[in-house]
Protein backbone atom coordinates (compact mmCIF):
# COMPACT_ATOMS: atom_id res chain seq x y z
CA UNK A 1 0.00 0.00 0.00
CA UNK A 2 2.72 2.39 1.05
CA UNK A 3 4.75 1.61 -2.00
CA UNK A 4 1.85 2.12 -4.26
CA UNK A 5 1.19 5.66 -3.13
CA UNK A 6 4.87 6.46 -3.54
CA UNK A 7 4.82 5.34 -7.13
CA UNK A 8 1.73 7.24 -7.98
CA UNK A 9 3.20 10.54 -6.77
CA UNK A 10 6.09 10.07 -9.11
CA UNK A 11 3.80 10.02 -12.04
CA UNK A 12 1.87 13.08 -11.03
CA UNK A 13 3.09 16.56 -11.43
CA UNK A 14 4.68 17.33 -8.14
CA UNK A 15 1.84 18.21 -5.85
CA UNK A 16 4.06 19.93 -3.33
CA UNK A 17 5.92 22.05 -5.85
CA UNK A 18 5.15 25.75 -5.98
CA UNK A 19 3.07 27.02 -8.83
CA UNK A 20 5.36 27.69 -11.80
CA UNK A 21 6.33 31.31 -12.08
CA UNK A 22 5.36 31.36 -15.71
CA UNK A 23 3.93 28.78 -18.05
CA UNK A 24 6.87 26.68 -19.24
CA UNK A 25 5.84 26.80 -22.88
CA UNK A 26 5.73 30.59 -22.90
CA UNK A 27 9.03 30.79 -21.09
CA UNK A 28 10.64 28.48 -23.60
CA UNK A 29 9.12 30.49 -26.46
CA UNK A 30 10.40 33.77 -25.04
CA UNK A 31 13.87 32.31 -24.75
CA UNK A 32 13.71 30.89 -28.24
CA UNK A 33 12.65 34.27 -29.56
CA UNK A 34 15.39 35.94 -27.55
CA UNK A 35 17.91 33.65 -29.18
CA UNK A 36 16.43 34.40 -32.61
CA UNK A 37 16.79 38.09 -31.86
CA UNK A 38 20.45 37.58 -31.08
CA UNK A 39 20.85 35.72 -34.36
CA UNK A 40 19.31 38.63 -36.24
CA UNK A 41 21.34 41.10 -34.18
CA UNK A 42 24.46 39.38 -35.43
CA UNK A 43 23.45 39.83 -39.04
CA UNK A 44 22.11 43.34 -38.43
CA UNK A 45 25.40 44.23 -36.75
CA UNK A 46 27.22 42.96 -39.81
CA UNK A 47 24.86 44.90 -42.05
CA UNK A 48 25.44 48.14 -40.18
CA UNK A 49 29.18 47.68 -40.12
CA UNK A 50 29.33 46.96 -43.83
CA UNK A 51 26.95 49.78 -44.67
CA UNK A 52 28.74 52.36 -42.56
CA UNK A 53 32.15 51.48 -43.91
CA UNK A 54 31.03 51.38 -47.54
CA UNK A 55 31.79 54.35 -49.75
CA UNK A 56 28.38 54.40 -51.34
CA UNK A 57 25.36 52.36 -50.41
CA UNK A 58 23.97 50.95 -52.60
CA UNK A 59 27.02 50.71 -54.85
CA UNK A 60 26.60 52.70 -58.03
CA UNK A 61 25.95 49.79 -60.37
CA UNK A 62 23.46 48.12 -58.07
CA UNK A 63 19.68 48.62 -58.14
CA UNK A 64 17.90 50.41 -55.32
CA UNK A 65 15.43 48.34 -53.41
CA UNK A 66 11.69 48.51 -54.04
CA UNK A 67 10.81 50.46 -50.90
CA UNK A 68 7.25 51.27 -51.94
CA UNK A 69 6.05 47.81 -52.85
CA UNK A 70 7.77 46.42 -49.83
CA UNK A 71 6.11 49.10 -47.72
CA UNK A 72 2.72 47.81 -48.80
CA UNK A 73 3.95 44.33 -48.13
CA UNK A 74 4.93 45.45 -44.64
CA UNK A 75 1.39 46.61 -44.01
CA UNK A 76 0.10 43.24 -45.18
CA UNK A 77 2.30 41.43 -42.75
CA UNK A 78 1.46 43.75 -39.87
CA UNK A 79 -2.20 43.25 -40.61
CA UNK A 80 -1.75 39.52 -40.45
CA UNK A 81 -0.13 39.98 -37.05
CA UNK A 82 -3.08 42.04 -35.94
CA UNK A 83 -5.54 39.33 -36.97
CA UNK A 84 -3.42 36.78 -35.21
CA UNK A 85 -3.57 38.83 -32.02
CA UNK A 86 -7.36 38.70 -32.11
CA UNK A 87 -7.39 34.93 -31.75
CA UNK A 88 -5.03 34.88 -28.81
CA UNK A 89 -8.03 33.81 -26.74
CA UNK A 90 -9.48 31.25 -29.13
CA UNK A 91 -12.44 30.31 -27.01
CA UNK A 92 -15.29 31.26 -29.31
CA UNK A 93 -16.59 29.34 -32.25
CA UNK A 94 -14.04 26.94 -33.70
CA UNK A 95 -14.95 27.88 -37.28
CA UNK A 96 -14.18 31.52 -36.65
CA UNK A 97 -10.80 30.61 -35.22
CA UNK A 98 -9.98 28.42 -38.18
CA UNK A 99 -11.15 31.08 -40.61
CA UNK A 100 -8.95 33.65 -38.93
CA UNK A 101 -5.99 31.32 -38.93
CA UNK A 102 -6.39 30.75 -42.63
CA UNK A 103 -6.63 34.48 -43.18
CA UNK A 104 -3.42 35.04 -41.19
CA UNK A 105 -1.56 32.40 -43.16
CA UNK A 106 -2.84 33.68 -46.47
CA UNK A 107 -1.55 37.14 -45.71
CA UNK A 108 1.78 35.59 -44.75
CA UNK A 109 1.81 33.63 -47.96
CA UNK A 110 1.01 36.75 -49.94
CA UNK A 111 3.88 38.55 -48.22
CA UNK A 112 6.25 35.78 -49.19
CA UNK A 113 5.01 35.74 -52.77
CA UNK A 114 5.49 39.46 -53.20
CA UNK A 115 8.98 39.10 -51.77
CA UNK A 116 9.72 36.21 -54.08
CA UNK A 117 8.55 38.25 -57.02
CA UNK A 118 10.67 41.21 -55.99
CA UNK A 119 13.69 38.96 -55.60
CA UNK A 120 13.28 37.62 -59.09
CA UNK A 121 13.13 41.18 -60.40
CA UNK A 122 16.16 42.21 -58.37
CA UNK A 123 18.15 39.28 -59.65
CA UNK A 124 17.14 40.38 -63.13
CA UNK A 125 18.53 43.84 -62.38
CA UNK A 126 21.83 42.27 -61.42
CA UNK A 127 21.54 42.17 -57.65
CA UNK A 128 22.86 38.78 -56.63
CA UNK A 129 24.76 37.21 -53.78
CA UNK A 130 27.99 37.61 -55.67
CA UNK A 131 27.36 40.98 -57.32
CA UNK A 132 28.35 42.92 -54.22
CA UNK A 133 28.42 42.70 -50.47
CA UNK A 134 25.33 44.89 -50.66
CA UNK A 135 23.49 42.12 -52.44
CA UNK A 136 24.95 39.46 -50.20
CA UNK A 137 23.87 41.02 -46.94
CA UNK A 138 20.49 41.91 -48.42
CA UNK A 139 19.75 38.34 -49.40
CA UNK A 140 21.17 36.97 -46.18
CA UNK A 141 19.21 39.25 -43.88
CA UNK A 142 15.95 39.38 -45.79
CA UNK A 143 16.33 35.74 -46.74
CA UNK A 144 16.82 34.74 -43.12
CA UNK A 145 13.62 36.57 -42.28
CA UNK A 146 11.82 34.96 -45.20
CA UNK A 147 12.88 31.55 -43.96
CA UNK A 148 11.41 32.45 -40.61
CA UNK A 149 8.17 33.52 -42.25
CA UNK A 150 8.10 30.20 -44.00
CA UNK A 151 8.73 28.39 -40.73
CA UNK A 152 5.99 30.42 -39.08
CA UNK A 153 3.59 29.55 -41.89
CA UNK A 154 4.26 25.85 -41.52
CA UNK A 155 3.68 26.18 -37.82
CA UNK A 156 0.41 28.01 -38.46
CA UNK A 157 -0.67 25.29 -40.87
CA UNK A 158 0.06 22.72 -38.21
CA UNK A 159 -2.10 24.40 -35.60
CA UNK A 160 -4.83 25.10 -38.12
CA UNK A 161 -4.90 21.42 -38.83
CA UNK A 162 -4.87 20.64 -35.13
CA UNK A 163 -7.74 23.03 -34.47
CA UNK A 164 -9.82 21.58 -37.27
CA UNK A 165 -9.17 18.09 -35.98
CA UNK A 166 -9.66 18.50 -32.27
CA UNK A 167 -10.72 22.08 -31.61
CA UNK A 168 -9.16 24.17 -28.89
CA UNK A 169 -8.94 22.10 -25.79
CA UNK A 170 -6.91 22.97 -22.76
CA UNK A 171 -4.02 20.73 -23.84
CA UNK A 172 -3.79 22.37 -27.24
CA UNK A 173 -3.82 25.92 -25.98
CA UNK A 174 -0.07 26.05 -25.35
CA UNK A 175 0.79 24.75 -28.79
CA UNK A 176 -1.66 27.18 -30.30
CA UNK A 177 -0.24 30.17 -28.49
CA UNK A 178 3.35 29.12 -29.08
CA UNK A 179 2.72 29.32 -32.81
CA UNK A 180 1.08 32.72 -32.42
CA UNK A 181 3.98 34.02 -30.33
CA UNK A 182 6.37 32.94 -33.03
CA UNK A 183 4.23 34.63 -35.65
CA UNK A 184 4.22 37.88 -33.65
CA UNK A 185 8.00 37.72 -33.53
CA UNK A 186 8.24 37.23 -37.28
CA UNK A 187 5.79 40.05 -37.93
CA UNK A 188 7.26 42.57 -35.51
CA UNK A 189 10.82 41.95 -36.60
CA UNK A 190 9.96 42.83 -40.16
CA UNK A 191 9.40 46.60 -39.87
CA UNK A 192 12.80 46.95 -38.20
CA UNK A 193 14.48 45.15 -41.07
CA UNK A 194 12.43 47.12 -43.54
CA UNK A 195 13.56 50.47 -42.21
CA UNK A 196 17.15 49.38 -41.84
CA UNK A 197 17.55 47.76 -45.21
CA UNK A 198 15.24 49.54 -47.60
CA UNK A 199 16.18 53.12 -46.79
Amino acid sequence: MMGHSAVSTVNEDFGGAPKPLINSTYLAMFMFIGAELMFFSGIIGAFLLLRLSAIDWPPVDQPTLPAFVTGINTILLLFSGYIASRIWNPFNNKDIVVRNLIFVSSLGLLFLSVQGYEWIRLIGFGLTLQSSVYGAIFYLLIGAHAMHVLGGLLWLFAITFLTIKSGIVETNLNKFRAALLYWFFVVLLWPILYFLVYF
Binding site: A35, E36, L37, M38, F39, S41, G42
Partner: peptide, 8 residues
Protein backbone atom coordinates in the same frame (compact mmCIF):
# COMPACT_ATOMS: atom_id res chain seq x y z
CA UNK B 1 22.50 34.82 -26.09
CA UNK B 2 25.95 34.09 -27.48
CA UNK B 3 25.53 31.06 -29.69
CA UNK B 4 23.06 32.68 -32.12
CA UNK B 5 25.66 35.34 -32.84
CA UNK B 6 28.19 32.64 -33.67
CA UNK B 7 25.55 31.04 -35.86
CA UNK B 8 25.10 34.29 -37.76
Amino acid sequence: LAIPVLAS
